[in-house]
Amino acid sequence: MKKFLLAVCISGIAISANAQTKAVAKKPVAKKTIATSKTLPGTIALKSGLDSTSYAFGTSMGTSLKSTGLSTLNYEALLKGLKDAFAGGKVALTQQQAQQCINDAITRASAVKTMAENEANKIKFAPMIKEGQEFLEENKKRAGVQTTASGLQYEVLTAGTGVKPTATDSVLVHYKGTLLNGKQFDSSYDRGEPISFPLNRVIPGWTEGVQLMPAGSKYKFFIPYHLAYGERGAGADIPPYSALIFEVELLKVNGK
Results as ranks from 00 to 15, higher is better:
T36N: 12
I44F: 07
F86I: 11
L212D: 11
S150V: 06
E134Q: 10
T178P: 08
Y225F: 13
G235T: 03
L5A: 02
Q146N: 02
I15F: 05
P28V: 14
A126M: 08
K3I: 04
P214H: 12
E119R: 09
L6Y: 12
Y189S: 05
S242I: 00
K141F: 12
F197Q: 10
S64C: 15
L82V: 08
S37H: 13
A7M: 15
E138F: 12
L157S: 01
V248D: 03
Q153M: 15
K26R: 07
Q211I: 00
A109R: 13
K218P: 15
G144M: 10
K218Q: 14
A149C: 06
E155V: 14
I106C: 07
T168L: 12
K47C: 11
S242F: 02
P240C: 07
D237S: 10
T43L: 05
L180R: 13
A111S: 01
V210D: 06
A143V: 12
P224K: 10
I195L: 12
A19P: 05
S52V: 04
K130S: 15
A35G: 11
E193M: 06
K220E: 06
S60T: 14
Q20C: 15
D169W: 01
K31T: 15
Q146E: 04
L65Q: 00
L78W: 05
T63N: 06
K3T: 10
P198G: 06
P204L: 07
E247I: 10
E208V: 08
Q133F: 15
H226E: 09
P127N: 11
R142T: 04
L78I: 00
I106P: 00
G230S: 01
G160K: 02
S196P: 06
T59S: 15
S196D: 14
T147V: 01
S196H: 15
G160D: 14
T158A: 07
G89Y: 12
G182H: 15
S170F: 04
A25H: 10
E247F: 03
K176W: 10
Y189N: 07
I44K: 06
A45Y: 07
S187P: 05
K31A: 09
K32S: 07
L152T: 00
H174R: 04
I44R: 09
Y229I: 04
E117F: 11
D190Y: 13
G88I: 07
G255P: 12
K83W: 03
P239I: 00
G12Y: 06
L65G: 00
N181A: 06
V210E: 07
T43K: 11
K141N: 02
G192W: 05
I123T: 00
E131K: 15
E76I: 11
T107Y: 06
T68Q: 06
L65D: 01
Q97Y: 02
M213D: 12
I13D: 11
A228V: 08
T168G: 05
I106N: 01
I195Y: 00
A105Y: 05
S37T: 11
P204C: 00
R108V: 12
K113M: 00
D169G: 04
E119G: 04
K183A: 04
V24S: 03
V171L: 03
N103M: 02
G182V: 09
I245C: 08
V173W: 08
G205F: 12
Q100R: 15
R191L: 05
A215P: 08
L46F: 09
N181C: 10
E249N: 00
Q153D: 04
V91W: 03
Y75Q: 14
G58A: 09
T107K: 08
G216V: 03
K218C: 13
Q100E: 13
A14F: 06
A215I: 05
T207R: 09
D169Q: 09
